[in-house]
């Protein structure tokens, strides 16, 4: 995959819509390519946050640790699609990972390690502004989604309990099946 392909992948992301090719090129220069295979664990909960990824191709499953009646299991809570970031919240808030990310298909990630990530954030040119605004767009959508979930819980806690129990039952059955195999 060439630099041009990385720029095309960035241009397809909703967070970089309308950004010039020159600026995308400057951002792409900080990124490295990371192929992924289906089932690969990309980063795990409680690991230090040291990188940010943007999905160029493929899908990534987000798993969070949940428990019921004293038993704990990682439960899939969402699927991330091409053009989406992951790993940025931990790096920006200086917190360890709160989720485990697993490739749910083969694909390709654009990876930004901590130092180039910080260089981009501090860039005084248009490049830095475009990247900071991309982060803001991604975080703004996430905040809207998580606050909407909190609102739903406040409005209808019984529905949240039922959803959670269903997710946990499926995840525990899956773990038990693997154990029997």
């Amino acid at each position: 995959m060439s630099a041009t392909d990385i720029i095309r992948a960035l241009a397809r992301s909703p967070y970089f819509r309308g950004i010039s090719t020159d600026v995308l090129h400057s951002i792409a220069m900080h990124m490295s390519l990371q192929p992924m295979v289906a089932g690969e664990v990309l980063s795990t909960r409680l690991q230090p946050s040291e990188a940010v990824w943007l999905i160029a191709d493929g899908r990534v499953e987000v798993r969070r640790l949940q428990g019921y009646k004293g038993r704990r299991v990682e439960v899939p809570v969402s699927i991330l699609k091409p053009g989406m970031f992951f790993g940025h919240v931990g790096l920006l808030s200086e917190q360890p990972r709160t989720a485990t990310w697993v490739a749910s298909s083969p694909g390709l990630l654009l990876r930004l390690d901590r130092k180039p990530f910080e260089r981009l954030l501090a860039d005084p040119r248009m490049t830095g502004s475009a990247f900071r605004r991309a982060m803001i767009l991604a975080l703004g959508s996430q905040l809207q989604a998580v606050n909407s979930r909190l609102n739903d819980f406040i409005a209808n806690p019984e529905a949240e309990v039922a959803t959670r129990k269903e997710l946990l039952r499926d995840a525990m059955e899956s773990v038990d099946r693997v154990g029997q195999d």
Binding site: Q66, G67, Y68, V89, G90, S93, T98, V146, R164
Partner: peptide, 18 residues
């Protein structure tokens, strides 16, 4: 704010269910 809300959902709510 995202980190806090995620922790609320996945930490606090989860511990109540656990």
């Amino acid at each position: 704010r995202v980190h806090d809300s995620v922790m609320a959902i996945d930490g606090v709510l989860a511990s109540a269910f656990e």
